[in-house]
């Protein structure tokens, strides 16, 4: 790599997050996880759905390094494949949440008045409501499955991004360059889309990334209640739900998916913190 390219890359903020040891480890883990999630159908050592009842609840050993579950399925393969389910549900949900939240928040922040009051009343209320209740009620309405879990998580976190975006917009609105653009005759849509949102983007994206971690936990919790991924598709939460009854017989069925959730969320948080530092947006992220 030539130094010119490196200079250009290091000028790009997310890469600066890799400049510390924590950033390298956490970021590296996340990249690895993304690769595993993407290639899961091809790299799992065993078929994630293949049952072998004769070998049910086998303790970790060879060839099942994380043991087998109540159907004799390989826990390691299912944990790997679970990354695919958990990450895709959580990331999609947060992406929806961020997009809709940004639009709502931007509109509220820009237009102000009664519209802002109405939006913020709803947002404050849902923000103060336990996310698990929102998600459970929503899944009950539209039925079980990965799609509904995704939307349930998106709705549960919508308030957070709406609040955040609005705060950014309100702050930016008072800045001179915006006033200048308005004085120059720009339309509101132009101002919001071209000037305000791009400026508010960085903190919202970073918070969004951190929220992917929370989304994974929420997805796991819904899975624990038996919602979300339908059997035999593995997801970390669902694996732990069929494992509850098994806590005594085969603790590995619960322990490993739990460790996977915790490790992933920790990595997301650590890398997120490094990003915040690299982008120097600490003051703007907290709100």
């Amino acid at each position: 790599m030539t130094s010119a390219v490196w200079n250009k890359l290091s000028g790009f903020a997310p890469f600066r997050a890799f400049s510390s040891a924590i950033g390298i480890v956490a970021g590296g883990f996340l990249i690895l996880l993304l690769l595993v999630a993407f290639f899961a159908p091809w790299i799992t050592p065993f078929d994630v759905a293949a049952q072998n009842l004769a070998n049910a609840n086998a303790a970790p050993g060879w060839p099942h390094i994380m043991g087998t579950d109540e159907f004799g399925r390989d826990v390691f393969s299912r944990v790997l494949y679970g990354a695919r389910t958990s990450l895709s549900v959580s990331a999609t949900a947060i992406a929806i949440s961020v997009s809709v939240g940004m639009l709502l928040g931007a509109a509220a922040g820009y237009f102000g008045g009664l519209f802002e009051r109405a939006v913020m009343t709803v947002v404050d209320l849902t923000w103060s409501f336990p996310d698990i209740l929102i998600a459970l009620i929503f899944v009950a309405i539209i039925g079980p499955g990965l799609t509904s879990t995704t939307f349930a998580i998106a709705i549960a976190y919508l308030a957070q991004f709406t609040r955040l975006t609005r705060a950014q917009i309100v702050r930016l609105k008072s800045e001179t360059f915006v006033e200048a653009t308005i004085n120059l005759g720009a339309t509101p849509a132009h101002v919001v889309l071209r000037h305000l949102l791009p400026n508010a983007l960085a903190p919202v994206i970073v918070v969004g990334m951190l929220a992917v971690g929370d989304g994974i936990v929420l997805e796991a919790t819904l899975g624990f209640f038996g919602l979300g991924a339908q059997p035999p598709t593995p997801s970390w939460g669902a694996m732990m739900s069929s494992g509850t009854a098994q806590l005594f017989i085969s603790p590995w069925v619960i322990i490993y998916p739990g460790v996977a959730v915790a490790a992933t969320v920790i990595a997301v948080n650590l890398f997120g913190d490094e990003l915040v530092r690299a982008l120097d947006i600490r003051d703007r992220v907290r709100s």
Binding site: F71, G143, G145, L227
Partner: peptide
């Protein structure tokens, strides 16, 4: 749920692809 997953596997053996939904 456990029983259903075993039924799913048994149906698969004769060539029936059963898709589970848990309500």
């Amino acid at each position: 749920k456990r029983l259903t997953q075993v039924v799913q596997a048994q149906l698969k053996d004769v060539g029936i692809d059963a898709v589970i939904t848990v309500f």
